[in-house]
């Protein structure tokens, strides 16, 4: 990953005495997807609006590419904002909507036309460019909403809950695209209250609750804070005790025992160690029927940190 593209330091914002965001500091590097994870009303959208220059912070600062968002209007050329709700004119076509938004970013003529084509292609909507948005399905509208944020080739893409209310197929397509943006070197700030999305696409996750960033790190780092270990469960035919002994010989395995007709193995990082455990089972001559890696997830981390489940 590259240098930090987005830096937020001590962001604070209140609404009529209610503190919506309190002392939030985070940074996102080029080629990194940063997930801001938290329940509804945690302060994710307020944080994003301050990052995009839509809200002035009461305290703290935001810089993108080393330039202050509050002070320099031109910095917004570096930011692609995809709001939570589909913000497009329903009675205009997809192409007209993108053309209009592109002009706001000073795109003109052939360049604008090429960027519109590119954005439509990137979101698999090239065949529907001439159709009115109100004829689109919810998933297509979401994809077009993202396309609108990509027109001007931003270096930082800010996605505010981009998969809310979409079908699984469209959600998969959107997450695939987000991963593609990372490969292109874009910094992505991704807010969600879907824990599985954060685990799937984000390099690092910040957990926000009641306006405060209460934890931050990779999924592994956050899980490690729980002090819980991963567990590999092997179902096999034959001598299970021999299998357990073979597994115990693998470096990194902390314990292995037979329980409920299967071998239960306690490890630090289940996914990393799994190939070596399988290899040890093969050397022991015990055919493995099924493998299950059970690891503490971000839901458990959130519960541990806040005392409440993420979806509450």
């Amino acid at each position: 990953m590259g240098e930090d593209l987005l830096r937020c330091d001590g962001l604070r914002r209140t609404f009529g005495g209610r503190v919506a965001v309190d002392d939030v500091s985070l940074h996102v590097a080029a080629g990194e997807i940063y997930g801001l994870l938290g329940p509804n009303g945690a302060g994710k959208t307020t944080t994003i609006k301050m990052i995009c220059g839509l809200l002035d912070p009461d305290a703290g600062s935001v810089s993108v590419g080393g330039r202050s968002v509050e002070r320099e209007l031109a910095v917004r050329m570096l930011i692609g904002y995809v709001p939570q709700d589909v913000a497009l004119y329903p009675d205009l076509t997809a192409r007209e909507n993108l053309g209009f938004l592109g002009r706001l970013y000073h795109l003109r003529g052939r360049e604008l036309s090429a960027r519109v084509d590119e954005a439509l292609e990137l979101t698999d909507l090239q065949s529907r460019g001439g159709d009115r948005v109100d004829s689109f399905s919810g998933g297509m509208k979401r994809r077009l909403n993202i396309a609108a944020g990509l027109l001007h080739h931003p270096r930082l893409l800010v996605l505010d809950e981009p998969t809310v209310g979409v079908d699984p197929q469209s959600r998969h397509a959107i997450l695939e695209r987000v991963a593609e943006f990372r490969r292109r070197g874009m910094a992505v700030l991704y807010t969600t209250h879907y824990m599985e999305e954060a685990e799937r696409v984000c390099d690092r996750v910040g957990i926000i609750d009641h306006g405060r960033l209460i934890a931050e790190g990779t999924r592994r780092e956050l899980v490690d804070r729980l002090g819980q270990k991963d567990r590999i469960e092997l179902s096999a035919e034959g001598d299970l005790d021999a299998l357990a002994a073979a597994c115990r010989s693998v470096a990194g395995v902390e314990a292995a025992s037979v329980s409920d007709g299967a071998v239960q193995i306690v490890v630090g990082d289940g996914r990393r160690l799994l190939p070596e455990v399988i290899e040890a089972a093969e050397h022991a001559g015990v055919p493995v029927r099924s493998v299950d890696v059970v690891e503490p997830d971000l839901e458990a981390v959130f519960l541990h940190l806040t005392g409440t489940a993420l979806r509450e």
């Binding site: 995009c52 220059g53 839509l54 209007l73 031109a74 917004r76 050329m77 930011i79 904002y81 709001p83 709700d85 589909v86 913000a87 497009l88 004119y89 329903p90 938004l101 706001l104 970013y105 000073h106 609108a148």
Partner: peptide, 14 residues
């Protein structure tokens, strides 16, 4: 209501 003003405002438009 459509959130267009917010989107427009996120662009370099005062």
């Amino acid at each position: 209501r459509l959130g267009l003003y917010e989107r427009i405002h996120a662009a370099p438009v005062r």
